[in-house]
Design a protein around this nucleic acid. Structure first.
Lengths: 169, 169
DNA sequence: TATTGCTTTCAGTATTTTTTGAAAGTATAA
DNA sequence: TTATACTTTCAAAAAATACTGAAAGCAATA
């Protein structure tokens, strides 16, 4: 396979994966483009490469910047903005985990804790079951939360080494 | 908080969480409804509870059945179909992981393996960088794959016990 | 200060996804 | 066999989401 074709497929696949996980396709594609590019890219180049409008490119670059996956860089003599994507895959994974944890897991945890205070005059089966359910979900969420917290601190090879050793022992 | 209100919030939150992770909101809500319900539910009851159409209810119940999260049950004397949701949270998590791994992770792995065969006449930096990138992503994907495989086999408390021990040592 | 080159915004439009509801399908019972 | 009770399907409608492009903003230089 040729490099150009391979890049195209990588960008496509990244976009599709994004969609399936609630991330804007274009945002994921721009990210993929930046991952495989050695040079900083301008908005113009991204528009060109993905056949998208200026507005679309701009908004998604900003979103990626907000996620901490893309940084603005200045090129000597050049007036226009250039952007580089984080290249370290483990850092990318950690960053995505961090953002999504804050935005999605934390609020759910908060709600579950509230729901644990649910009460009723008559202690019937429905109530008991609801309480158990919420408790179980909460336990799982807390564990996932802890796991993610640990990931933040961990160095990649150490992390996988430890994790996978558990299951082969 | 009262039980009815708590249930409503739980269903709402589950739906929102689903949306954010590429799962149809209604599907997630039906699932939540079934998680907290002690009794089997009919299509009628689900329609009523969530204010959705028959078609919508039917299609999403089927989807949940395909995911292995909901089972059809027969009520003695009753003609209509009733459904029960899997109640064990760990089983639900495993099942979701299994389905999404097959549908999403496996194809990505396959593509990454293909992309590793990329070649070019001139061995320039762009090529080298692409190869490294694909390799790194592939490594991560393989590790995630292994982790999920391990989850399938693991019993919940054992799993978390082992995992969390690593990080407190 | 005016011009130029570039960035940002956002109302309107297009696309994608989800939902509806009525008709067709199926199975049980009369 | 026909009626009844229920389920499934799917074309069309609605809703949600993403994208465009032109106008407004901003900052560097002439």
């Amino acid at each position: 396979m040729q490099l150009l074709e391979a890049k195209k497929q990588f960008v496509q696949a990244w976009g599709a994966l994004g969609s399936q996980w609630g991330i804007n396709k274009t945002m994921a594609q721009i990210h993929a483009l930046m991952m495989v590019s050695t040079e900083p890219l301008s908005t113009e180049e991204i528009m060109e490469e993905l056949s998208i409008s200026r507005g679309n490119a701009n908004m998604n670059i900003r979103e990626l910047t907000d996620w901490g996956l893309v940084t603005k860089v200045f090129k000597a003599g050049e007036r226009r903005d250039y952007f580089v994507g984080e290249k370290e895959v483990w850092k990318i994974a950690k960053q995505v985990a961090k953002i999504r944890k804050t935005r999605e897991l934390d609020p759910i945890l908060k709600l579950l804790e509230q729901l644990k205070t649910v009460n009723a005059h008559i202690k019937n089966d429905e109530l008991k079951h609801f309480q158990k359910m919420v408790n179980d979900v909460h336990k799982l969420a807390v564990n996932v939360d802890r796991l993610i917290e640990s990931i933040f601190k961990a160095e990649e090879s150490w992390f996988w080494d430890k994790i996978l050793k558990i299951f082969t022992k």
